[in-house]
Computed example of a mutant assay.
Amino acid sequence: MDVPNSCFRENVMLGCEKFIAEFFRQIDSANWDDLKNLVSDGVVYERPGYRPFVGVDEFMRFYREERNVNSGRHVIDRIFERGKDWVCIGSFRGKSKAGDDLSAEFVDIYTMSSELILRRKTFFFAPLM
């Protein structure tokens, strides 16, 4: 089934695209106070290798303390939106806290509520084990 992409338009940044760009801008600049304002109090974040982070405090603790990234930049390739469900496809390049190079392709699935992230689930492209 071909899903219409009402968020991504050539040379036009619509609401969801602006929001996702701002979300990753706050992460890449380690601006945790402003990042907190983009998620709901009851946010749930799931990503490989971690138990789900439930609530804004656990979500923020992950970014402030647990995340193994010292610096880097997300690049957004595509965004799809259907109502409150958004999908972002992109990549990340950066350095770990130990100084190692990091490189990953990812897909994020978001459920939005009142213009805030209610749920986020991240998938990484990785070699088969």
Rank of each mutant, 00 (worst) to 15 (best):
E58R: 07
V56G: 00
L128A: 09
Q26Y: 12
D85G: 11
V43R: 05
E105T: 11
F24K: 06
N68G: 07
F80Y: 13
N70H: 09
R73P: 01
R64S: 05
K95S: 09
Q26D: 05
I20F: 06
D33K: 10
L128F: 05
T111F: 12
K36N: 08
T111K: 14
V75S: 12
D57V: 15
D33I: 14
E17Y: 10
Y50K: 15
V107Y: 00
R64I: 11
E22W: 09
D41L: 10
I109V: 14
A21L: 09
E105W: 06
G90C: 11
T111A: 14
F123M: 15
G83W: 13
L102F: 13
A30H: 07
I117A: 08
L35A: 01
K36Y: 07
S103Y: 15
F62Q: 03
S91R: 11
F125Q: 10
E22D: 06
N37D: 02
E66Q: 06
G42H: 06
E115F: 09
E17M: 13
N37H: 02
K36D: 10
V69P: 04
A21P: 04
R119N: 13
A104Y: 02
K36S: 11
R120F: 03
C88T: 02
D34E: 12
K18M: 10
I89T: 00
D28T: 00
M112T: 12
F23G: 07
I76Q: 09
G72K: 10
F124L: 12
R25S: 12
N70F: 06
L102S: 08
H74I: 14
E115N: 13
K97D: 01
H74K: 06
D101W: 01
M60D: 02
D85H: 15
G94F: 10
R119P: 06
E58C: 09
L116K: 11
V107G: 03
M112F: 14
K97W: 04
W86D: 15
I76W: 03
F106S: 05
R64V: 07
Y110K: 11
R51Q: 08
F24G: 04
L118H: 03
L116V: 13
L102V: 14
R61H: 08
P48H: 14
D28H: 01
E22K: 08
R119Y: 13
A104F: 03
T122P: 02
P52T: 01
A98E: 09
S103R: 14
F123K: 04
F59H: 11
S71F: 05
D77R: 10
R47F: 02
A98Q: 05
R78N: 09
G42Y: 02
F124M: 08
A98T: 07
R61E: 10
Y63W: 14
R47S: 07
I117V: 15
A98F: 07
G55R: 00
F125L: 12
D41F: 02
R120Q: 12
A98G: 04
I79N: 03
I89E: 01
V44C: 08
E46Q: 03
F19T: 10
V75Y: 09
Y110S: 12
E58S: 11
